[in-house]
Design a protein around this nucleic acid. Structure first.
Length: 414
RNA sequence: GUGGCCAUAGUUCAGUUGGUUAGAACGCCAGGUUGUGGCCCUGGAGGUCGUGGGUUCAAAUCCCACUGGUCACCCCA
């Protein structure tokens, strides 16, 4: 038997309505913040991701789905959304249309990792990017948008963590300083952390290893070494968050897994998830557009996992709307089936969701089917009804019945 | 990539110290009610016990390998 690839999942008919509901809600919120949808291809040249996400990150180093196509070009299934969006932004000169571009995306992403709770190889993210603004208001609009989404879904157990990772001026200075501190205790650090001292010292502070945590506990944090510009920006972000009543905690050790972030970095986590507790992450990336060949364009964005949001909603027994037929037309005898077939199509073309039996089943089986489909109403049609032009309209939710004219069906179902 | 746990009907699971025909619940189908669903009752269909090998007179049960799932590490959505 064929099986779906490891780490991939079917979204089955029984659950697709939930996905559609989540996507509808997301689109509605994006609309309120005036972010417009962008749909980019799900694969790109491999080097686009390598250059933007960073050669040394885990994503690029060991998680990308890359392959060579028939013309010997290296292609990669997108592991995240920002790189493609920025590529499109540059390629299509979106900066020439208006000074600030605000877009969102919803779609599948791919990373070849071992699956576990809250982690798949094909998973789905939504995200937003605001390209062209250096202001702290833009950072906070993005953060507020992300937070608003979780609030809208009624989530309570989530936490917003923010940090500033500095810029090309102050971060290198801080990194050198931190490296020196780390080298003093290098032999006692975990092997992974030792490897990171040279290439990504800030990640050592974020290590989950208990011993690493103890060793690095008193070490200097980037927030203490920001230059004037980054520091002012960070203070402004915090002030605006407070103004907007968005609770947050500053986490000086927060470093995101992608290299392109500058200044603001943030993460939304939930204790309601398993070990993979990140719901969303994002930040400012003022250097990325230039790095990918565009004009320097200060930008901010975030990305969030749909499966993880869905997990929490299901744990919370969130009440998703379930679509159901308005009417089930049942045949009491075989002579009535043709009339029903024709009538169902008429009603459908008038916008009414109607189901009928296609399996030539007994009336009892048809009624069971109407119930299983959670139809609102049923009407049984037989010889008598066709002769008299009347029928019983049965409300399957409250079990009441009333006599109606068959010609009034549309009206009754409005 | 590394490690723990798991694998028996469509689903969730039971299956004793290895022993005849592998069970339950739910779901599915039909009937009870020959023109009315939900509850109830009766009956029915449905399994190469993940795959391959080994031990044994005998394997769902013990052993090995593989495959798949799951959870965790790493890291991230």
């Amino acid at each position: 038997m064929y099986k779906s690839i490891k780490g991939t999942k079917d979204i089955l008919p029984a659950e697709s309505a939930r996905w559609q509901f989540v996507e509808r809600t997301l689109r509605d919120i994006f609309h309120r913040y005036n972010y417009k949808e962008i749909r980019t291809p799900i694969f790109e040249q491999t080097s686009l991701f390598a250059r933007s996400i960073g050669e040394l990150t885990d994503i690029v180093g060991k998680e990308m789905y890359s392959f060579t196509d028939r013309s010997e070009e290296s292609i990669t299934l997108r592991p995240e959304g920002t790189a493609s969006v920025i590529r499109s932004f540059i390629q299509n000169n979106l900066d020439q249309i208006q000074p600030l571009t605000k877009v969102f995306y919803i779609g599948p992403m791919f990373r070849q990792e071992r699956p576990q709770a809250g982690r798949l190889r094909q998973f789905h993210q939504f995200g937003a990017e605001a390209a062209g603004s250096p202001t702290a208001e833009t950072d906070v609009e993005i953060i507020s948008l992300a937070v608003e989404i979780y609030r809208k879904f009624g989530l309570k157990n989530f936490q917003l963590k923010i940090n500033s990772v500095g810029d090309e001026d102050c971060r290198p200075r801080y990194k050198e300083l931190l490296k020196k501190e780390l080298l003093k205790v290098a032999d006692k650090l975990s092997p992974e952390s030792q490897k990171r001292i040279e290439q990504n010292p800030m990640r050592v502070l974020d290590s989950k290893d208990e011993r690493d945590k103890e060793l690095t506990a008193g070490m200097p944090l980037i927030t203490e070494y920001l230059n004037e510009e980054c520091s002012v920006h960070f203070e402004r972000v915090k002030a605006l968050l407070s103004t907007c009543n968005i609770p947050f905690v500053v986490d000086g050790k927060l470093v995101r897994g992608l290299d392109y972030y500058t200044k603001t970095a943030f993460e939304i986590t939930s204790t309601a998830l398993g070990s993979q507790d990140a719901l969303a992450g994002g930040g400012r990336y003022d250097l990325l557009v230039k790095e990918l060949g565009g004009k320097p364009t200060p930008s901010v964005g975030f990305a969030a996992g749909i499966e993880r949001l869905m997990m929490i909603l299901e744990n919370n027994h969130f009440e998703f709307p379930e679509p159901a037929p308005a009417l089930f037309l049942a045949a009491a005898d075989d002579d009535s089936r043709e009339w029903i077939f024709k009538r169902a199509n008429e009603l459908r073309s008038q916008g009414i969701a109607v189901e009928i039996d296609l399996l030539a089943r007994s009336l009892k089986a048809q009624m069971k089917e109407a119930d299983r489909q959670n139809a609102e109403f049923s009407v049984v049609i037989g010889k008598t009804e066709l002769q008299n032009g009347t029928a019983q309209l049965k409300n399957l939710r409250n079990h009441s019945q009333k006599q109606i004219l068959l010609s009034d069906l549309e009206k009754e179902l409005q």
